[in-house]
Amino acid sequence: MRIVAEHLSYTYNAKSPFSATALRDVSLTIEEGEFFGIIGHTGSGKSTFVQHLNGLIRTPSSLKRKKKRKAGEQETTLTVGEYDLTNKKTNFRALRRHVGMVFQYPEYQLFAETVKADVAFGLKNFADKKLTEEEIDEAVRAALEVVGLDFEEIKDASPFELSGGQKRRVAIAGVIVTRPEVLILDEPAAGLDPLGKREVMELLHRLHKDWCKTVIIVSHDMDEISENCTRAAVFEEGQVRYVLPPAQLFEKSDELIEMGLDVPLTAKLVKLLRERGVEIACDFTTEGFLQAVLAYYRERKGAAQ
C-alpha cells in the first residue's frame, strides 16, 4: 500500500484559546515495501502525522476543503493504498485492519485476563465472521512466535505478570496478529535496555521481511534510523524538512544538530575523522562505516609500501 499525503495540515483544539498547530502543509509519499523512519523533536508533529495514517485523526471534512479551495489554498490529499482518508465515507475499520499501529509504550494498553485473549482482541474485532477456536489459536500462535514468545508457555499467563520486554512483545503481537500490510510503530524501543532495544529492532526486521510489507517507525534514536531505514523524514515544527535515505540525510549532520536533533554514532565518527583530515564516505550503517575505514586503511597501507 502506497501512502500519499499532500498539503496536509492539522490544528489541535482549533478555534479555542488552546489551539496548537501540529502539521503545516505536509507532503510526503511512502512507497510500498519501505522501512521508513520519521525523526523529529517532541511536538514536531510526527505522532500527529502517523495517527492520520489509520484515521485516528481525521482530515477536515469536504466542506472545509471546498472553502479552502476557494481561498486559493492547495487541496489536501491523503491516501493509503486505495483508501481515500479525506473522504468521510471511507471504511476506517477496514483501513485499520491493513494499517497496524503500535503506540508508544504499547504494554500500557494490555487489558485482558490472558495473553491469548489480549492478542486475539484485534483479530476478533476485525474478523468478518465468528472465528473458530482453532483459527484464533493458529493466528495467535503465529503472531506470538514471530515476536519470539512461546505460545504454549505463555498463552494462559496474565499479561500483567510478564516482564517489561515480554509485555511489549505481547502488545506488538496484538497489533500484527491481523497481518497488516503497513505497520506503524511510535518509539518502539523507548524505555528498554540496550539488549531489549536490539531485540525489538531485530523483530522489526523479521516483520518487514515476511510479515508486513511496509514498516514505519517514529524514533528519537538516530542509530535505529541509520541502521534500519530505507528512507527517513525529518519533521520540524509541523513541517517536513528532509526526506532522504540515511546515507544522504546524515551528510547534513550540522543542520540536524542545529535543529536540536542527534546524529548516529557513525556520523559523529565520520565528522571527527574529517576534522583530522581523514575523508571517508559511507552510508552511516555500522557495517558500511567499518568497510569505509578498512578501505581507507588498506589504501594508506598500499600507498606507504
Binding site: 485516528l56 497496524g100 494498553q109 482482541f121
Partner: peptide, 10 residues
Amino acid sequence: IKNAQKARGA
C-alpha cells in the same frame, strides 16, 4: 488508550 484500542479494531 482509546486510540490504541481503536487501532486494534475496537
